[in-house]
Design a protein around this nucleic acid. Structure first.
Length: 892
DNA sequence: TATTTCACG
DNA sequence: ACGTACGTGAAATAG
């Protein structure tokens, strides 16, 4: 069975262009319309499975329609150059799809499609027309379905003659009469003035055609009659213009339209140029084993790889060490398998230097004949250029090998250059920098359950390619850091910090397992009681931990009012449950259950699993290349979200203790760092004044916003002021604030405008920073850390609003992150210079945690806050509060 | 693997 | 008119 798919190329690409936010590839070519077109095409090919496909395009500016009416399509905006440039690329892409295309001077795409649907009607071939233009509905027939795009290009409405009847009460051919009467602004077809869709439909339901309407003018009256009478010619001409010409001299044979699938490699190549990575993945064009193998081999062909596996290869190893001694340029890649560097398995490494690459299994490092290479790794004056050296350093340390002389990290640099790039993989960075292909790790190792270390030769080759990529990337990224003003940020802060983090992580923090276990037993008992009470109140047993089952019990069985919905069902989050509390006694129990089971699973059981048996310590892994704002993140386990707000959870902190007897935990946190940063950045005199006098900022805010004295500020006013301050930092909206405070949007809006009246500098900052982001495409912190905001000029309100809030928040959160990172670098240097035994253990965004011996306690109590406060000079003082105790709980 | 919920700043 | 607070990670359930 044949099935044709006919696509109105111009109409779809136009629609796609306006529906998809601007996209460019790294060479600056616009690709959004092509992307939209392609995703729609792929979807329809899959859904409709056509045997024949044709994309028709308009050709030339003048068509036969202009002969009778020169203004046809007049008044249209010129095609934007951002779209024009995409036409040739799209046409080339269709080539890779093996889809035929057709255009003919003097005719529009509609006419070509009209001609083909006529043939389809004659032959009785099922046909599917894709367009963004409702004019085409006139072509619908028993065999011909018209798909009109909706919501941009992501969805289509299908029009059969029945559907048209249902929607308009017309047969397909009457669509031209409809256009004849109502006209079409976009094509500059006049129609009859004063006649819109409603009136036109009414007239046609009565009289059927334009001609009949004109013949029956006497049955009309008033202004309508007058209008039609005077614009009779317009109506007839408009109808003619709207009529699709179905006799185009179509010179292809139908066979030429046949579609048998796309050309995989060609399409992959085209997508690569366009940088449509998601589409490459979706069609699995990238990871075809055979291709990859070939490409990797080709890429490795120019590389002279020296494998060092045993003492037999001592000569090669000596040569390597010799080269490393002579040059200070190299590329080091050490492969550590596993996400957690504290448990990663080192399997091999490669070093690129001058024009050779040396690859070896990791075991070689441990052998006597490799002593010189070990020395090289451990010597601080021998620079190493690598990828994710933070992880490498940790993995090496655990295996008993030191690592010094880290000079540059490609991953860390790439993160600074674009912190929003999701996966900072070497392959991705390589591609972005336009270097020759480096197969992604997935292609070599497989992913998920299929992960497997390949045979030795494949591994050596892959590691060699990576080492070579590192070597080539170092100068490119160094240059880019310099071009973007981030060299200092990199070399003075981020890079040194990565070494400090590795030290903190390897050091670890002591955890008393008995403490956690005791807490766990207590929780266990409480949970058992709560569960049985919940079952009683529910009248049945179910899994309280399942939002689905809980939703059914609460909203169906117990008939409580459902408030919010998630995409899969009822929402049962704490906010919803708190509102339901007055309705049923089961609610507080469920909230309590949630709270305790979170403690039990995440914090008691979760943390216990991470305690090293040998040392009784937990070693978190701070990730420096994840957060878009420049903050650190913490994994395996996350020690940046240990409970503190509720007393029951706070108990967890009692298990975090010093690792040596008699030592103390010292914790210091910045006071209001984000608002202080805001006062500085926004240069807001009133807010700066408040901090210069070290006032309680929330009380001060309440005083100014409500116009009262300090004594008159009650707890409710302070709470509101605090919420507004938070909101300001997040990029406020009246809705967000109203949600947070449980007040109406109007009230929230009033708060915000009052606030902005009081803090005029803040208001100006919010306006300026968004403006600046729209102009530059990025925002920056005080230390010049950048974050690009791709959606800042999006036409989609949601995306744009999100980007605007991010523009307001990132310089604040990011500068605060810069400051504590700076404090960590200073603190580390101070501890070293003074040869102190105290150790920096943890960072929690605005807090640093140390373990401190007795004889240094008094010193550290003043030193830590001093160093933190002095990390960066702002127009307002920075302040850090210090506390100490026998464990993290006591240090409050 | 995706979704929901909740812990932190 | 649009539908929202900013930044993270982990655990459990469900598909």
């Amino acid at each position: 069975m044949e099935k044709w798919m006919l696509i109105d190329g111009n109409s779809i690409i136009y629609r796609a262009f306006f529906a998809i936010p601007p996209l460019t590839n790294s060479s600056g070519s616009h690709t959004n319309a092509i992307f939209g077109f392609t995703t729609m095409l792929l979807k329809l090919l899959e859904q409709e499975k056509p045997t024949h496909v044709l994309v028709a395009f308009d050709a030339g500016k003048v068509t036969f329609r202009h002969e009778g009416y020169a203004e046809y399509k007049g008044g249209r905006q010129k095609t934007p150059p951002e779209l024009s440039e995409q036409f040739p690329v799209l046409k080339e892409l269709l080539g890779a799809f093996n889809i035929s295309q057709y255009e003919l001077a003097g005719y529009e795409a509609d006419d070509i499609i009209g001609t083909l649907t006529k043939a389809a009607d004659d032959k009785g071939v099922e046909t599917f027309v894709v367009t963004g233009d409702k004019d085409m509905l006139q072509l619908a027939s028993e065999k011909v379905t018209i798909a009109v795009t909706r919501k941009g290009v992501s969805e289509v409405d299908l029009y059969t003659p029945e559907a048209i009847q249902e929607k308009y009460g017309l047969v397909p051919m009457q669509i031209i009469d409809l256009k004849g009467l109502m006209g079409d602004v976009s094509d500059n077809i006049p129609g009859v003035p004063g006649v819109g869709e409603k009136t036109a439909l009414k007239l046609l339901h009565e009289h059927g055609t334009v001609e009949n309407v004109l013949a029956n003018l006497d049955k009309l009256k008033g202004k309508l009659k007058e209008n039609i009478e005077t614009h009779k010619d317009d109506a007839e001409m408009s109808k003619k213009l709207a009529t699709i010409f179905r006799e185009v001299p179509f010179e292809k044979s139908i066979d030429e339209l046949s579609y048998a699938g796309y050309d995989g490699p060609k399409l992959a190549e085209a997508f690569r140029k366009l940088e449509f990575k998601s589409l490459i993945e979706r069609l699995q064009l990238g990871a075809e084993a055979g291709d990859m193998e070939e490409e990797a081999q080709a890429a490795a062909a120019d590389l002279s790889i020296h494998v060092i596996e045993s003492e037999q290869h001592k000569e090669a190893l000596d040569r390597l060490v010799d080269i490393l001694g002579k040059t200070d340029k190299n590329g080091l890649y050490i492969e550590a398998i596993g996400e957690n560097p504290h448990h990663a398995e080192l399997i091999g490494l490669a070093i690129a230097a001058e024009d050779a690459v040396f690859a070896m299994p990791y075991s070689v490092i441990k052998q006597p004949f490799a002593a010189k290479l070990r020395d090289w790794l451990e010597q601080a004056d021998k620079p190493k250029y690598g990828f994710d050296l933070h992880k490498v350093e940790l993995a090496l340390k655990w295996s008993g090998i030191g690592f010094e002389g880290s000079a540059f990290d490609v991953q860390l640099a790439a993160y600074l250059l674009d912190p929003t790039e999701a996966s900072q993989t070497l392959s991705g960075i390589n591609e972005k920098q336009g270097l020759s292909l480096l197969p992604p790790d997935e292609a070599v190792y497989g992913k998920g359950a299929k992960f497997k270390v390949p045979d030795a030769d494949t591994l050596y080759r892959h590691l060699s390619l990576k080492a070579e990529a590192v070597r080539k990337l170092v100068p490119l990224l160094t240059e880019e850091l310099s071009n973007t003003g981030m060299s200092k940020l990199y070399f003075d802060m981020e890079h040194p910090l990565s070494r400090i983090l590795a030290g903190m992580e390897f050091q670890g923090i002591k955890v008393k397992s008995e403490e956690l276990e005791a807490l766990g037993r207590n929780l266990e008992g409480q949970l058992t009681t709560i569960i049985s009470n919940v079952y009683k109140l529910a009248g049945m047993e179910f899994n309280i931990g399942s939002p689905k089952q809980l939703g059914e019990v609460l909203f169906e069985k117990l008939g409580l009012p459902a408030k919010k919905k998630t995409k899969t069902g009822y929402s049962t989050d704490a906010e919803v449950l708190e509102e339901l509390a007055p309705y049923h006694d089961i609610i507080p129990l469920i909230l309590h259950y949630r709270q305790l089971s979170k403690l039990q699973s995440t914090y008691v059981e979760g943390l216990l699993k991470e305690v090293r048996k040998e040392t009784g310590k937990i070693h978190t892994y701070y990730r420096q290349t994840i957060a878009a704002t420049g903050r650190l993140s913490s994994q395996f386990p996350n020690l940046q979200n240990i409970p503190i707000r509720l007393e029951e959870g706070r108990q967890i902190r009692k298990a975090f203790v010093p690792s040596e007897p008699g030592w103390s935990i010292v914790a210091a946190d910045y006071s209001q760092i984000e608002l202080r940063v805001l006062a500085h950045i926004a240069d807001d005199e009133n807010m700066k004044e408040a901090f210069i006098h070290d006032m309680d900022i929330h009380t001060k805010t309440a005083m100014d916003v409500f116009g009262v004295t300090a004594e008159e500020v009650d707890s409710n006013m302070r709470r509101s002021a605090k919420a507004v301050n938070f909101g300001i930092v997040y990029g406020i909206s009246d809705f967000g604030l109203s949600q947070n405070l449980g007040i109406t949007r109007n009230e929230a809006g009033k708060f915000i405008s009052d606030y902005k009246e009081v803090f005029k500098g803040v208001r100006q900052y919010m306006l300026d920073i968004v403006q600046q982001a729209k102009r530059d495409g990025y925002v920056a912190t005080l230390l010049e850390r950048r974050r690009y905001l791709n959606d800042i000029n999006a036409s989609n309100f949601n995306l744009r609003s999100f980007a605007e809030r991010t523009a307001m928040n990132t310089p604040i959160q990011g500068t605060a992150a810069d400051i504590i990172k700076l404090a960590m670098v200073h603190m580390d240097a101070t501890l070293r210079e003074r040869k102190l035994k105290s150790r920096m253990l943890l960072q929690v965004h605005d807090e640093l945690v140390f373990e401190v011996p007795q004889d240094e306690l008094e010193l550290m109590k003043t030193l830590v806050p001093e160093v933190m406060a002095g990390a960066l000079k702002l127009d307002v003082p920075l302040k850090a509060d210090m506390s100490f105790g026998d464990n993290w709980y006591e240090a409050k």
